[in-house]
Write a protein that binds this DNA or RNA. Structure first.
Length: 425
RNA sequence: GGAGAGGUGGCAGAGCGGCUGAAUGCACCGGUCUUGAAAACCGGCAAGGGUUAAUAGCCCUUCGUGGGUUCAAAUCCCACCCUCUCCGCCA
């Protein structure tokens, strides 16, 4: 949610910033509504103030045993007028909300211009893609050869975009989760949290995944329950601070959670249909930080570094890009994507997305902290994948593959794999 | 699932339909005292919103949520949600 105060005082700046995200803001329409809101609200509130004053008078007169019928007659007509003013005000507010609710967050000034992912800017590259002196296989061929990945079976059970992992790969999956959680809790200062995988609509609205108007990428339970499966741990974890006023010394709050994530992928028919790149259900270790506003950009660099540390620990080549305005998500002010090298695709593919939302989520969430005795201020929220586990697993298969189709276990994972150095052999 | 109790400020806990945005205690902040601290004493201390140059005033809203009764609701009525206790069931 964009600061309504800013929309009143400097809507041009907002309109300019939103243009970078491809959102055109109807400034005139907004200002017309806003001035209506102002006069209606002033009117409605002054009617209420008058009524309150009169009612108090009645109370006083009656307490003294006097006759209050005169004042009561005077106040009688108020109810109706108040109701009309109230109704009109609500209507205008709703129209304003319809406009602000679909406004994305403003990009940070450091965000490059651009319309699509082609305009994202590479800011760093780490490691070198391996050279193979044999025909490279992708993770599907590698996994299916030993029945350690079984897409057909998953389709039988649940339909397309699911996978069954068996034996060593199921264990590798678990090893990766442990490795990531241990690294973030032991080296990076995060507190591990376990959270619900089903959440309410309210929680989704808080983090911006659910808009009344936009479509969403969510699985839902039957209407009577009203639950949604989480598309990312960002939702339950960030909602920890919803409607809270935190003490300054609670910040920064650094949380890490491993959860499965569920997405319909409704808009991506035909895209990434092969393999584990895009699934309805996948595992992710998510980093979340709740920080003071002045610290959020340092925190973004730090948090991105924490995700990079996992890739470096696993010795997977990757590059870091900063998303251009047009490719930025709805709620984000700035995002770094980490893209891991996938020999099977001969390309870098996203494996982590680290974003600063500034106060955009916090405003919806009502997440504040106490600056001084009497003052509260919205916090800034950030999150990033550290990392997407399924994609990490397939990156390992493809980068560590051998001529015979076996796969070397990265050193960092061996203690989590019971000392095994080679799998799919 | 059945029976009962309850949801009030950071916490605990009062609150006859008007003088209660809310007693009191704790916590917290400021001060006096003290070499310093503690104790004691004095003062302050909810959030959101509007108006405004203003973090000054003034005003509105909020006592689980939503509706209703009334000139007036934390207080009365209805529905829902949640919590706790007991019983049943269950990993």
């Amino acid at each position: 949610m964009i600061d309504p105060q800013l929309l009143r005082t400097d809507i041009q700046t907002v309109a300019e910033a939103l243009k970078l995200k491809g959102h055109s803001l109807d400034v005139d329409a907004y200002q017309v509504l806003e001035s209506k809101r102002k006069s209606l609200q002033v009117e409605a509130e002054s009617l209420q103030a008058q009524r309150n004053a009169k009612s108090k008078e009645i109370g006083k007169v009656k307490a003294q045993g006097g006759d209050a019928s005169g004042i009561m007659a005077e106040v009688n007509g108020f109810a109706e007028r108040m109701k009309t003013a109230q109704t009109e005000l609500e209507a205008v507010k709703e129209q304003l909300f319809a406009m602000t609710d679909v406004m994305p967050n403003m990009p940070h000034t450091s965000v490059p211009k651009g319309n699509s992912e082609d305009d994202n800017v590479e800011v760093a590259k780490w490691g070198t893609p391996p050279n193979f002196d044999f025909d490279v296989r992708d993770h599907v061929d590698l996994g299916e050869a030993k029945s350690a990945l079984d897409f057909e079976m998953a389709t039988k059970i649940a339909g397309p975009r699911f996978v069954v992992m068996r034996g060593q790969l199921a264990k590798l999956n678990r090893a990766l989760i442990q490795y990531m959680l241990d690294m973030h809790t032991q080296n990076h200062g995060y507190e591990e949290v376990y959270v619900p995988y089903l959440v309410t609509q309210e929680s989704l609205i808080g983090t911006g995944q659910f808009s009344k108007f936009g479509d969403h990428d969510l699985f839902a339970t039957q209407a009577e329950d009203g639950y949604y499966l989480i598309p990312t741990a960002e939702v339950p974890v960030t909602n920890i601070v919803r409607d809270e006023i935190l003490a300054a010394d609670q910040l920064p709050m650094k949380l890490v959670a491993h959860t499965p994530c569920f997405r319909r992928e409704a808009g991506s028919y035909g895209r990434d249909t092969r393999g584990m790149i895009r699934q309805h259900q996948f595992e992710k270790v998510e980093l979340v930080q709740i920080v003071k506003p002045e610290d959020s950009y340092d925190a973004l660099e730090e948090l991105t570094g924490h995700a990079e540390a996992v890739l470096q620990g696993l010795e997977l080549p990757y590059r870091k890009v900063v998303l251009c305005g047009g490719d930025l998500g709805f709620s984000a002010a700035k995002t770094y994507d980490l893209e891991v090298w996938l020999p099977g695709q001969d390309a870098y593919r996203e494996i982590s997305s680290c974003s600063n939302f500034e106060s955009f989520q916090a405003r919806r969430l009502g997440a504040r902290y106490r600056v001084e005795q009497k003052k509260t201020e919205l916090v800034h929220t950030l999150n990033g994948s550290g990392l997407a586990v399924g994609r990490t697993l397939l990156a390992i298969l493809e980068n560590y593959q051998q001529a015979d189709g076996s796969v070397v276990v990265p050193e960092a994972l061996r203690s989590y794999m019971g000392g095994v150095e080679l799998i799919l052999n």
